[in-house]
Design a protein around this nucleic acid. Sequence first.
DNA 1: CTGAAAGCGCTAACAA
DNA 2: TTGTTAGCGCTTTCAG
Lengths: 339, 339
Amino acid sequence: MRTRRSSEKITVSIEDVARESGVSPATVSRVINKFSSVKEKNRKAVLATIKKLKFQPSVFARRLAKGKSDVVALVIPRYEGVFYSFYVLELIRGIGTLCDALKLDLLLKLTSAESALNYTSMGGIIFADIIGNQCQLSNALEQGIPCVVINNYIKEIGVSCISIDNVKGAKEAVNYLAGLGHKRIAHISGDLTTQAARQRLEGYKKGLKINNIDYREDYVVTTDYSRGKARWAAHKLLELKEAPSAIFVASDSMALETMTVARELGKSVPRDISLIGFDDNPSGLYAPVALTTIRQPLVKMAEDSVKELNRLMSSSFAKPAKNLLPCELVIRESCASVR
Amino acid sequence: MRTRRSSEKITVSIEDVARESGVSPATVSRVINKFSSVKEKNRKAVLATIKKLKFQPSVFARRLAKGKSDVVALVIPRYEGVFYSFYVLELIRGIGTLCDALKLDLLLKLTSAESALNYTSMGGIIFADIIGNQCQLSNALEQGIPCVVINNYIKEIGVSCISIDNVKGAKEAVNYLAGLGHKRIAHISGDLTTQAARQRLEGYKKGLKINNIDYREDYVVTTDYSRGKARWAAHKLLELKEAPSAIFVASDSMALETMTVARELGKSVPRDISLIGFDDNPSGLYAPVALTTIRQPLVKMAEDSVKELNRLMSSSFAKPAKNLLPCELVIRESCASVR
DNA sequence: CTGAAAGCGCTAACAA
DNA sequence: TTGTTAGCGCTTTCAG
């Protein structure tokens, strides 16, 4: 006897379709799953009833029976300033669009680094970054769930990584400034708990070395990527007795804040101070002086991450792959050469 | 006999926990679901085994058995320019954070307006906007799924709406300009297939009327919210024989584009042309001249939408509610008074 | 307070 | 080519 909890929501099941079409549930299932073995006549009948009854196969029942899930979880560690970084939005855009195309469900996990995830619903996980949530990553891996990490090149663990060459990008930025004749080049660094910030700092140092410029501790100020901190850092640098003539800033949004501070202090960009950012945030285009920056291929990273995850999800034999994408110097108007 | 498909993924089930703790599956289930009836001793034992075995209850099995889902789907119609509007990101941020807090799963559906959704997985739906996807909305409603619509005040249908008072906001913008002495006030409108754009246009007209300014057709240019179109519209208006002295632009990103065009044409903002936007996009702060704008409480809208959806999902008797939030004039530097 | 047993809606052998 | 049947892992009466 069919007991229905109450008349709350009327769900039409595969059995209803089967009865109505005069076939067995199995045949209906075969039609849904596009088995070629079903006789054309039956297929048509089933398809017709499905439409007539507005039947939609229960996603949960199907996943339970199949023993696997086509859900991609996008885990975004929630830290101060993530959302001002332009980074996340582009990622979501790229990942969301591709998931839709590949008929994968996208589960958005905007969560604190410590919170435990229930992995049973996830067919695979994309980590937008690893910031204090290594634990989530290693647990997932231990559970045998395919994972892709964006923005972090992790050598130690066998996990797929899609990241950009931050060191090279930063080096290039400094190189460019040095090429314009700058000797006093400072750096506003991001949150050093992120690998990207650490690598950009490293690239900055390398860039100096290549150009035989001595590293000065007072020329490096560390922030948490937030605008507030950027403002503070900009003041610190611009009010230095021997102020820098150029600053490489670890993100565009912070570079824009720096530009604002400079103007408030009566300094002209790029005449008095050259500025170069990182991200290619479109806001940089609308700044008083268009911002020179390092562009990272965010949408490509996003798409690659889904493709890679899909590959891992499709075959249990697939081995994780590491991928390092190049970034590109975008010259606009915020840097001048010094005579 | 337990047949396991292959040794692919080892899942530990509620039965394993039961056996290991010397109780029945039902008791384990009761512990998981925090039934107060379980004897303390048993609860402890079960909890211990759960930890020991790293057991996580299968989300799918649970949903199937319970017959309901705690998944919130956020449907974002994918149209040209959605992602440049700042709007979406703020929404995702607010919704994502609150869903996490309420332990609701967030399913992101970045999809074209025509594509059919499988509603069986969704406990409720938030529509980020209704743009050509009325069909998805009415189907969902017909299936009895709780829905909340953001950014659209739909009178005709019994569905919860969270929107802002676009008409009033636009009126206020025009009022402000008129108050500064402007008579030649133009409008760059957004995509008129969106309700927001239509209402802003309406508010613009009302604002003119209140101030006894005649409506001129050549002073209104319609776009699709994209930057390219904004550029075109700006040219069209600024190169008019009798050019306007002020423009109310339907979005900040378009206002910024307009500002750029004005400067390219050698016009100074706000001396030659006053500009006011809509959104309070932070980019406006970094513009050559800080943008005056109308602020909409996006994060509040986002949070309210989740709360409202949660209310609807919690009780099948809950009736949909309509909510109109006010917006606020933010005066910065892009408008000047005319003598 | 606990356990047995019957589903939830679908898939996947196995037979026919 | 199709139907029968036994699960997938959990919840939920209903007894006890």
